[in-house]
């Protein structure tokens, strides 16, 4: 049995938090910079099922990251509200963990202690912490790099460490903000595959922000297409392709070119 298979099997056993439903109700966001009001999000309404894998697709600066930050509780909406698992979101919560584009690992901690960070906040004893951290480090294939510091890791390894850090606290929803955007194509494909496996095993709710059409189709059950600023959802497309998905799959490629056409139309109009 390969290492991946064993590792994913372990997650299935240790990960207890299943996905949660998330509702976005009439959310708008307006930033004011130097006295000027900039509308980032224009009334978003959204229903996400528990355990759904939803991709938010749109051009840069369309407000999709803003929406993700609002769902994470890191930013507050100008109006409207987000309801996670029946509860209105008032701030950050460990049931919803955001993964940043820049990994956001702490450079003063090695990989192991980065992964342990959230567990430490929960007050978990050190011995148990180390055990849990090791499990997730193995899961993302960073075994042997526990004592490495951030600057010693490549971009792909940093994102994996960040994924392990997020998964370690066993959130019900993963909010991913273009986490693979800065990676080379090969590493990205590999991480797509790993993420798909993790999702299949844990059935967490995943919201994945991207501006890459093929990435969105390869990963999502649903793809939400955003218009350029001010952001609003212009299409909600269900992706009925089998899993695991391959980027080279004809159906996927066809769907991608359709979606590119939709995006062009939106940007043009």
């Amino acid at each position: 049995m390969s290492q991946t298979a064993t590792a994913t099997l372990q997650t299935a056993q240790t990960s207890t938090a299943r996905g949660i439903p998330i509702q976005v109700r009439q959310v708008t966001k307006t930033f004011s910079t130097r006295g000027r009001e900039v509308e980032a999000l224009q009334t978003i309404d959204l229903d996400i099922q528990a355990g759904e894998f939803v991709c938010l697709l749109g051009p840069s600066g369309c407000g999709k990251s803003t929406l993700l930050n609002i769902i994470a509780g890191l930013d507050m909406p100008s109006s409207g509200e987000v309801i996670a698992n029946g509860q209105p979101v008032k701030g950050t919560g460990t049931d919803r963990v955001l993964l940043f584009q820049e990994a956001a690992l702490f450079p003063w901690l090695d990989v192991e202690h980065n992964v342990e960070f959230g567990l430490r906040q929960m007050g978990m004893p050190a011995v148990e912490r180390a055990k849990v951290a090791q499990r997730y480090i193995d899961l993302v294939h960073l075994t042997g790099f526990e004592q490495s510091y951030v600057h010693q890791l490549s971009g792909g390894m940093r994102q994996r460490a960040a994924i392990a850090r997020a998964l370690a606290i066993d959130p019900a929803a993963l909010l991913m903000d273009e986490p693979f955007g800065a990676l080379d194509a090969m590493t990205r494909d590999l991480l797509h595959h790993e993420l798909e496996q993790i999702w299949l095993q844990t059935s967490k709710t995943i919201l994945f922000v991207t501006h890459n059409v093929r990435e969105a189709i390869a990963l999502g059950d649903r793809v939400l297409i955003f218009s350029p600023r001010p952001g609003r959802i212009v299409r909600d497309i269900r992706i009925d392709l089998g899993r695991p998905r391959q980027l080279e799959d004809h159906a996927l490629v066809d769907l991608a070119s359709e979606m590119v056409a939709v995006l062009r139309q939106e940007q043009g109009g």
Partner: peptide, 20 residues
């Protein structure tokens, strides 16, 4: 970004100061 990541992982109050 570090502060956001830490808050996101459940760090609050004094822990934010001492650990981040």
């Amino acid at each position: 970004l570090y502060l956001r990541a830490a808050r996101n992982l459940g760090a609050r109050g004094f822990a934010l100061y001492s650990q981040v």
